[in-house]
Amino acid sequence: MRWLLLLAWLSLVEAQAQEAEISGLVINHTITRTGNDFYRKFSERINDAGDLKANLVIKERPSARWGILIWVELENSTVYREFLSPNATSQDETAYRAADGVLNEISRRQVESLFADHIDMDKDEL
């Protein structure tokens, strides 16, 4: 009888551990001051919008010729990408516009997942 209770308890703990996923993180993988400023303003806008149901990663690649390529990844796919000039004065507007676009993409994906058919395959297998 004790083994049965122990197995039931272990299966309950395992089910709760699988459901406990951290979400709402915006991870900074920028290396320049312009990228860091973009990250800060982007994060402000995302946090002002409310609870984020996904994790985002902001990355950048500086280039002497083109400026700074900055992109935002959601579930290992790029949802926003743009070249930024290091001396541009409208970085705040660009970050806010990017955040709004990413929030729209997150909402679109959530609605799309409600109508997706996952009977034969798991979500990761698609």
Rank of each mutant, 00 (worst) to 15 (best):
W3R: 13
L5W: 12
A8F: 10
S11R: 15
L12A: 13
L12C: 13
V13D: 01
Q18H: 09
Q18G: 06
E19P: 05
A20W: 10
E21K: 11
I22R: 06
I22M: 04
G24P: 01
G24A: 07
L25R: 08
V26I: 12
I27P: 00
I27R: 04
N28M: 03
I31S: 15
I31A: 15
T32W: 06
T32V: 12
T32D: 06
R33A: 12
T34D: 13
N36R: 12
D37Q: 10
R40L: 06
R40I: 04
S43E: 11
N47F: 05
D48Q: 15
D48G: 02
A49K: 06
G50F: 08
G50Q: 11
D51N: 14
K53Q: 05
A54S: 07
A54M: 00
L56N: 02
L56D: 00
V57Y: 05
E60T: 06
W66G: 12
I68K: 11
L69I: 01
V72L: 00
E73F: 03
L74S: 12
E75K: 13
S77G: 02
V79D: 01
Y80F: 14
Y80C: 01
E82G: 10
F83P: 10
L84I: 03
T89H: 05
S90W: 07
Q91S: 07
Q91H: 11
Q91P: 01
T94Y: 06
T94K: 15
R97W: 00
A98E: 00
A99P: 04
V102S: 05
V102M: 00
L103T: 10
L103V: 04
N104P: 02
N104K: 08
S107H: 13
R108I: 05
Q110C: 03
S113P: 02
D120A: 12
K123T: 09
E125P: 09
E125R: 10
L126V: 07
